[in-house]
Design a protein around this nucleic acid. Structure first.
Lengths: 230, 230
DNA sequence: CGTTCGTCAAGAGCAGTGCTCTCGTTTCTT
DNA sequence: AAGAAACGAGAGCACTGCTCTTGACGAACG
């Protein structure tokens, strides 16, 4: 956002911001399906059709919220990891995991929007990738750092040859790390989100009460498997 | 379903079945949000209000589909596991995992309905629990069998004391198994669904192509952590 | 300074939704 | 055979996303 020149551009930017804010609040209370352009307009004292001056369709508003969501969880993970001593890789990993969980529990509907079932008929535009990879970038850097520092055990199981070509994208995230560790990291990464999914989507209801403690223990088990040297 | 007495009851049961079938087909193509009572009625040549004679509201139809979904994945897991030699616990585990994944990939929208973001404003009634636990019951039995047979390693990390009381529900699924193994199993179980979530919800797009191979490798790593002896 | 052009809010309207109510008709029960 | 229950059809309500037109305002240009 450069310094807005004309007054018209300024009020336009302000109104756009206000729309997304109200939409995010509605999303938090009603969920993605209950997000209504007309309700947003009503709350702003506008008529529904006026919203379309700012967002051509409902999906565009959703895209904005999705990008914001990815950035929010990404920023939370980056912040939590940055607060840890650089050479304590295990702690950095656990802090990053817990940041994901805490953000998701605090913003369940936003989390559902980005990591839950895709909204029907909605196709995420490529603009979202930049924001989407922030969290996994952090996780990749931790693994990379730990490996470079010689603070990781080598997995006993090698990936099958068919996965040789598949690891390309992940090798950029974890430079210098052998494939066996890369796949171990991917597996652990999906396990993290598996837990968060179950917790946020209510699969642990009537099964686990102290979910934070259980989560921490699970992440510790996973980190052990990943091979952080104590 | 007892033998239907009157002709009216028979046609009612038949129509109810046909409604759910059409609804399931719509669900498969449009997703949960695009499931429309009016469209179902249209396809049946009925008027929309007539549907309400059979399902008082849309959520009740959803509940039926959800129960069917849990039963479908549960049956798939039970079948796959039953086809394995009883003493090959690792193979039983991997077969069960792959059954979950294969069913989910084949029925993405139904999977999203039961394991994805909860549909807004919908509260799953208690009728669903019986069907919901079928898959995890199988997984629990495998762990239990393996432990009884002395075919599992003991985890090195003990769960924190705060989880003592939390494991109650899981102990019934895995009788005679120590808590350390129980939590390891829970962690592995969520990891399985974490992978399936990522795959079904498109998080692996442009990242992993040969997802079946990658899935198998990941499950093998997880099973190793769980401690199945070779 | 005045005009023109682009932007904007408003309103009506379309097609679709879940759901309710009423009204005859059919079917089962007594 | 008479009463009761269940049923399909239809109209209607409140809501949705979205489109089109209309009239007003503000900024830039001649």
């Amino acid at each position: 956002m450069t310094a807005s020149r004309t007054a018209r551009e300024r009020v336009r930017a302000e109104l756009t911001r206000e729309i997304t804010e109200i939409a995010r609040r509605q999303l938090a209370t009603e969920g993605a399906g209950g997000l209504s352009l007309r309700a947003v307009a009503r709350e702003m004292g506008m008529v529904s059709s006026a919203i379309y001056r700012y967002f051509p369709c409902r999906d565009d508003l959703l895209t904005t919220l999705i990008i914001d969501g990815y950035n929010a969880v990404g920023a939370a993970v980056e912040q939590a990891e940055a607060d840890c001593p650089r050479d304590d890789h295990l702690r950095r990993w656990l802090a990053a995991c817990e940041a994901v969980r805490d953000w998701a529990v605090a913003h369940p509907h936003e989390y559902a929007l980005i990591y839950g079932s895709p909204v029907p008929g909605y196709q995420a535009p490529p603009d979202t990738v930049a924001a989407r990879v922030r969290d996994v970038t952090v996780l990749g850097r931790i693994v990379s750092d730990a490996w470079q520092a010689g603070a990781m055990r080598t997995p006993t199981t090698e990936p099958p040859p068919a996965l040789e070509a598949e690891a390309a994208g992940f090798r950029e995230l974890m430079r210098g790390v052998p494939d066996s560790v890369i796949w171990q990291a991917v597996s652990t990464w999906t396990a993290l989100y598996g837990w968060v999914n179950f917790e946020v989507f209510g699969q642990f209801q009537n099964a686990i009460e102290d979910r934070r403690t259980a989560f921490r223990h699970s992440m510790r088990l996973l980190a052990e498997t990943l091979g952080f040297a104590q």
